[in-house]
Design a protein around this nucleic acid. Structure first.
Lengths: 192, 192
DNA sequence: CACAATATGTTGCCTATGCAACTTCCCTCT
DNA sequence: AGAGGGAAGTTGCATAGGCAACATATTGTG
């Protein structure tokens, strides 16, 4: 449709994303209209549709971008799934969920589902990528790796999500102490 | 040439102004090229020329805008040229000059002249507008008012400029104490 | 000085954005 | 049920911006 390399396109998409993030905090997802986004981004409403199908597609992209911004370099470059890497993923996921549920006012089921699915997917991709680089699963076939990554990602997400609802947001250390051993044992990576 | 109402135009000009202000602080006026501005503003170099003849025209506009941003509402709305209004103009002019000569690294004669002239012009306009509203110069003809405004603006500018070179930038109170009585007496507005 | 490199402007063509008008959909009120 | 109103999308046309190529200064360097 539009050339993603064109500087005008990059700028417009950035304007839209920024406007959307601001609006999310100000009025919550449900209350946001396309008109709102266009006004806030100082672009035309029709232009919005040249870049996103609807506000769900925009949420999808923003959610993914926000996740990327939060992954520590160390995790991205990790060659092995160590305790430390595991801890960072747990903490990061927990904080990410806190932000989306509190700062960004998750106020609708469609939004909650989309964000949750996105986090899980990103987590799984990240973990899978680490597995593939290291010899953590030496010789294991590709499906084994993917399933392990899926389970690990889901487990971490589940723990972080539970911890949010438990209202213990100021004690992420407890979460880590419980979740990390579980994950590492499950992967057969427990330390002696 | 271009329609100044078009949202794209407003946005582009704002991008250019902001980029220019940042660059002024980073490398000084002389070192700035049009290419620099275009890159910083994420616009095409050719687009710059659709809006400004050259970087001097841009400086002119930015200088004027900066002045407007600094005039206190009270001064804009003043109906009479009081001691207080006079003080505010002196302080504001002094601070404006400090910023342009220090923060913005005035590094060339053309730039210095342009900025100086702009400040004087804006000062004179501001003062003239106050004179016109009040009965400060009751019944005086238009030329008298304009000349008085020109002299007052130049005097304030001259005082502020001298004070900059005197290196007493942290004692604007002294400047005010000397300049205000001079101006007010000149206008025949001295308090009993 | 001469020569290269870089900055300044300009132009024609293409693409993205702005705009207005329209339809459709959904919600609310009576 | 039906009438109004606002949001969601869509479309055709006008305009601003991006790009590449060019010509012309200006600057810097041996």
């Amino acid at each position: 449709m539009v050339n993603q390399e064109d500087p005008r396109v990059l700028r417009t998409r950035q304007l839209i994303r920024t406007a959307f993030r601001d609006l999310l905090q100000r009025k919550g997802f449900d209350a946001i209209t396309i008109k709102d986004i266009a006004q806030e981004a100082t672009i035309n409403r029709a232009t919005f549709y040249a870049h996103f199908e609807d506000k769900y597609a925009l949420l999808d992209e923003v959610t993914e971008q926000a996740f990327h911004e939060r992954i520590p370099e160390q995790v991205v470059n990790a060659e092995e799934f160590t305790n430390d890497i595991c801890d960072q993923l747990i903490i990061m996921t927990h904080q990410y969920i806190i932000d989306f549920y509190q700062i960004c006012r998750i106020d609708s089921n469609p939004m909650a589902k989309l964000v949750d699915d996105k986090i899980k997917k990103m987590l799984q991709q990240t973990i899978e990528s680490i597995f593939m680089k290291g010899d953590t699963c030496h010789g294991a076939d590709i499906h084994h790796i993917k399933i392990m990554a899926a389970m690990t990602g889901s487990a971490i997400y589940g723990a972080a999500h539970y911890w949010l609802n438990a209202g213990e947001n100021n004690r992420p250390d407890v979460l880590v102490d419980v979740a990390r051993p579980y994950v590492m044992k499950g992967l057969g990576l427990e330390n002696p």
